[in-house]
Design a binder for these strands. Structure first.
Lengths: 229, 229
DNA sequence: TATCGAAATAATATCGATATTTTTGACGGA
DNA sequence: TCCGTCAAAAATATCGATATTATTTCGATA
């Protein structure tokens, strides 16, 4: 989410902004599958606007690594691969741990309030409302890091989070997380964070990511072998 | 450098490509100072093209964090600050070390040849040709990492490198690096890399960055206090 | 039947014009 | 003098049309 958030929410967002959010959503949830050619004309008719804001939105998405730009040959959604997924997981662990440590060192009560609140909201949201839940889930995780005073780092974490969420959507409901209690995992992470127990918080967070990652990886490789047959 | 490189170099680059490279260069070398408003009309007349490729190039530069986009209020070059500089240095150390370790683990003779060659070219280039030297200097450092199989990580390193180079240009010739022998530092790093001595290579690389960082930081804070008076 | 190349088609990239929005600056009231 | 307001000016954002470039189709040739 590179785009500057609106200060004044009453104001109508620009066409570019609308296009950016709409296309981004479509890619994340898988409505636009990986590797798909993104034709300006088609997007124009879907989003009902001129070509300029579409192109600009796509260019913004290039920075999020959700879209690839081929000079003179238009745009396509980023490809996926097990290697890419594994790299994202690795990088997330590296960067989020760094950010979490820094965040906890700088943490104050404002941060704590924000964290507790976002946790509460996430827990209350029914998992059935997938997109809404994912939004709150992301907010919770980003709030963990939010007391870090490293904007560039946070931007990377944010970006990696979105890249990862895409894989989660693509795996779809096939994933039922068997015996895990995701709610408890989150609560434990939050408690460790609120206690400012840096080591425990980091350990729990990374476990959380790695366990989910292992699930997804398994699912993903099954998918791929099924597909290539 | 997000933009897809041309496969066929005989081909004329698109206007967007030209604009991207031109504006990027102007920002990096400081011709467009930090915080400067980037007026489409002005850039249009400088680069002699329509508004669309300019806007698209600026949007691409947003992803490089060299340009900020303010919805409905145009573009401006990214601000600089001591905090930003320090963060870039920290992140570079973290990410480049990770990338270097991976690169050395995966290294082969192709990588080694590329590295040696880029080192040679850099050493031969007179420091007086600043822009050309910086290009070769970047190539050398990126080649150190280039055997890493983590494209996202490499992209981050590349981006951070450019953000850092900008500070070097801004500090300008004021910097004469006193008693350091930069050439030797590079050669030592290369030798450790060629020896696949991961620990030494990492240590030397980070020292190299941190020493330069300390120089710049000193220069930079002097600049700022002078300016704010 | 496979391959090459040229024409036809489709898509992208770019321009110039226009609609919106933000910024500026002058004016008058407190 | 200090604000707030409103119109004028400037700049951005967007559109529709066109030029450019890539892709496909289709036949001719080997």
């Amino acid at each position: 989410m590179n785009i500057q958030a609106h200060i004044d929410p009453s104001q109508e967002p620009s066409a570019t902004q609308r296009a950016y959010l709409a296309i981004r959503r479509m890619i994340l949830v898988g409505e636009l599958p990986p590797g798909e050619k993104l034709k300006i004309e088609k997007l124009r008719s879907i989003l009902d606007m001129g070509g300029s804001p579409i192109r600009e939105a796509l260019t913004l998405l290039v920075s999020d690594q959700l879209v690839e730009r081929l000079d003179q040959r238009g745009f396509r959604t980023a490809e996926i691969s097990p290697e890419n997924f594994a790299e994202i997981l690795r990088l997330r662990c590296l960067l989020e741990e760094t950010a979490l440590r820094e965040s906890l060192r700088n943490s104050d009560t404002v941060w704590e309030d924000r964290l507790v609140l976002s946790h509460h909201r996430m827990m209350r949201e029914p998992r059935s409302n997938v997109e809404r839940f994912e939004e709150l889930h992301k907010a919770f995780h980003m709030n963990l890091l939010s007391a870090s005073k490293s904007p560039v780092l946070l931007r990377f974490c944010n970006q990696l989070y979105d890249l990862n969420i895409r894989y989660r959507y693509l795996a779809g409901k096939a994933l039922n997380y068997s015996k895990r209690d995701i709610g408890k995992e989150h609560t434990d992470i939050m408690n460790a964070a609120v206690d400012r127990d840096i080591e425990t918080a980091c350990r729990l967070l990374l476990d959380h990511y790695r366990t989910t990652g292992a699930f997804l990886e398994k699912h993903f490789s099954a998918e791929l072998t099924a597909r290539t047959v």
